[in-house]
Design a protein around this nucleic acid. Structure first.
Length: 425
RNA sequence: GGAGAAGUGGCCGAGUGGUCGAAGGCGGUUGACUCGAAAUCAACUGAGCGGCUUGCUGCUCCGUGAGUUCGAAUCUCACCUUCUCCGCCA
């Protein structure tokens, strides 16, 4: 959520980033609503002050046994009047709140301005795509032939965009989860958590998925519960409605969770294989920190995710998302894109964002500065560290051999019980 | 799912209609004492939103939401959460 006072005092700047996001909204309506809001506050508070004063006098009168019925009648009218103003005030505040909750975050000055994916900026590239002496196969061919992925069974049990991992495929999925959690907890200082995989509406409002993106989520019928689309949601909300001490910051959390997404807008895209699933595993990284440190923390968080790919020796590149492609709540986002030989392309495997105080405002997560003074909103960051299913795909494709077998990455061998190679039955 | 009890400030805890944002204690901050620490003493110690002469001042918040009343932490209703017992289960 944007700070209303900031928007009102930076109208041009705010309108400019909205248009860079291609978000069509005229902010000037906020000025009128805010003026009305303040007018109504003055009105109702004046009435309430009079009512409180009157009630005090009634109390005094009754104590002495004096009749106060005339005064009481007068106060009743004042009370009714203030209730009327209150009703109008909450309408105005609700309207303001609705608008603010629907506006995207402002952009950091280093976020490139652009229209689409095409305009994202490549920041750096790591590793070199391997050149194969044969035609590299797609993971869906390799996976089925090796007996580690069963796409038909996924559809049979659920729907399209669901997959059954079998045998060593399932084993490698589990190995990757452990490998990544171990890396982030032991080397990068994150605390491992296991949050609920379902959360209530207010939690999703806190991180920005609701109210606007309900169509992307699975909802539990008859309950105020939704399947989490990412562990970012429960982890970031861990300290909602609280005031932390500055000395307790930064907070680093990591969690493995499955993620559930309806993929409503992506019909027809990546339908083969398991690149885009309704349910996928992910190890997530979340940070809460002070505003002064959040951009350093973003660089470090991105590096933490990169280390996963480096250790697995998977070629990737880092891109800065442009204003037209960046997410609703993010001020700056780096995507990590891993090389997929069968596609001859880099594909997203992680997304690392600084949401600044956008989510903190919605969650009301603040901290008290050591220097004293009023509580301030924390900055929140999140990043995939990294997507498990897509890592499995990347390994299968990048480590494939001419005979269709797959070599196990060095770093993963201990997690695979010493296994060095996956070959078909 | 059924029965009962309870939800007050960072924590404990008093408060059953009238200066109660809330006694008291713990914790914390500052000052005094001390070479320093402890102990002791004193003062301060929640958040949000407004107004104007920017230092004052007003309003709101005692699980959440409605209601009764001139006035609600205190009364009524609904919901949520926690605890105990029963049932069920990993």
């Amino acid at each position: 959520m944007l700070d209303l006072r900031w928007v009102l005092s930076h109208m041009e700047e705010a309108q400019a980033f909205l248009s860079n996001r291609h978000f069509d909204f005229d902010l000037s309506v906020l000025t009128g609503l805010d003026e009305e809001r303040r007018r109504l506050i003055v009105q109702t508070e004046e009435l309430k002050a009079r009512r409180n004063e009157g009630s005090r006098k009634v109390g005094e009168a009754k104590k002495v046994g004096v009749d106060a019925s005339e005064l009481m009648e007068e106060i009743r009218k004042i009370g009714d009047a203030s209730r009327e103003v209150d009703a109008r005030l909450s309408e105005v505040e609700e309207e303001l709140g609705k608008i603010l909750m629907s506006l995207p975050n402002r952009l950091h000055e280093t976020t490139p301005v652009g229209v689409s994916e095409e305009d994202n900026q490549v920041v750096r590239t790591w590793g070199t795509p391997k050149s194969f002496s044969f035609e590299p196969q797609a993971h869906w061919d390799l996976g089925e032939r090796l007996g580690i992925m069963d796409f038909e069974k996924g559809v049979m049990l659920a729907q399209s965009r669901f997959t059954v991992l079998k045998g060593l495929g399932s084993r490698m999925e589990r190995a990757l989860i452990s490998f990544m959690l171990d890396l982030h907890t032991s080397r990068h200082g994150y605390m491992e958590m296991q949050p609920p995989f379902m959360v209530r509406s207010a939690i999703l409002e806190g991180t920005g998925q609701l109210p606007k993106f309900a169509d992307d989520l699975y909802r539990i019928e008859g309950e105020d519960l939704w399947m989490i689309p990412t562990a970012e949601v429960p982890l970031t909300n861990l300290h909602r409605e609280t005031i932390l001490e500055e000395n307790d910051l930064p907070k680093y959390y990591t969690a493995y969770t499955p993620c559930f997404r309806r993929e409503a807008g992506s019909a027809g895209r990546d339908v083969r294989g398991m690149l885009r699933q309704h349910q996928f595993d992910k190890v997530e990284l979340v940070k809460l920190c002070t505003p002064e440190t959040s951009y350093d923390e973003l660089e470090k968080l991105t590096a933490d995710a990169e280390e996963v790919l480096q250790t697995l020796e998977l070629p990737y590149r880092v891109v800065a998302l442009c204003s037209g492609d960046i997410g609703f709540g993010s001020a700056k986002t780096y995507d990590l894109e891993v090389w997929l030989p069968s596609q001859g392309k880099y594909r997203e495997i992680s997304s690392c964002s600084n949401c600044e105080d956008f989510q903190a405002r919605r969650m009301n997560t603040r901290y008290r500065p050591v220097s004293g003074g009023r509580p301030r909103f924390v900055h929140t960051l999140n990043g995939s560290g990294v997507a498990i299913g897509r890592t499995l795909i990347a390994i299968v494709e990048n480590y494939q051999q001419e005979d269709g077998s797959v070599t196990v990455p060095e770093a993963l061998i201990p997690y695979m019980g010493g296994l060095r190679e996956i070959r078909g039955a």
